[in-house]
Simulated scan of single mutants.
Amino acid sequence: MKIFFRVQQRAYEITPESVSWPWLWKSLEEAKQGEIDRALEYIVDDELIEEIEAIEDLDERWETALEKAGLETGIKNGVSCFEDPEKLVDYFESRGGVDDEIAYVLIFKGRFVEVGEDGEDIAKFVEEVERVDWSDFKANIDMYIEKYVG
Score class of each variant (00 low, 15 high):
Q33S: 03
A54H: 04
I75Y: 09
A54I: 03
P85S: 14
G34M: 09
E63N: 08
D46T: 11
S80E: 05
L58Y: 02
D57E: 14
Y42W: 14
E41P: 00
I55R: 05
I36D: 06
A65M: 01
L66W: 06
R61M: 10
G74A: 14
D37L: 13
E83H: 15
E63R: 14
K68C: 12
W62L: 04
T64W: 00
V79P: 12
D46C: 00
G34Q: 06
D37S: 14
L48T: 10
L48D: 01
N77W: 06
D46P: 03
K68G: 00
I43V: 13
E63L: 14
N77G: 02
P85H: 15
V79M: 12
A69N: 08
E72M: 05
I52S: 03
E67T: 03
E50H: 02
I49W: 00
L66R: 07
E51R: 10
V44W: 04
E53W: 00
E51A: 02
G34T: 07
E35Y: 08
L48W: 01
I36F: 07
I75S: 08
S80T: 11
C81E: 09
E47Q: 04
D84C: 14
L58E: 03
I75F: 12
G70N: 04
E72G: 07
L66F: 10
P85I: 09
E60F: 00
D46S: 13
E60D: 14
I43S: 05
V79H: 07
A69R: 07
K76N: 12
T73Y: 03
I75W: 08
F82S: 11
A54N: 14
F82H: 15
A65E: 01
D57S: 09
F82E: 13
E47Y: 09
R61K: 15
I36A: 08
E51N: 02
L58R: 04
C81G: 11
E83L: 08
Y42T: 02
V79I: 15
E51Y: 09
I75H: 10
W62M: 01
K68E: 15
R61N: 03
E67I: 00
G34V: 09
L58K: 06
T73M: 03
L58M: 10
E51D: 13
R38N: 14
Q33D: 07
F82V: 08
D46M: 07
E50Y: 01
A54T: 05
E83Q: 15
L40A: 05
N77V: 11
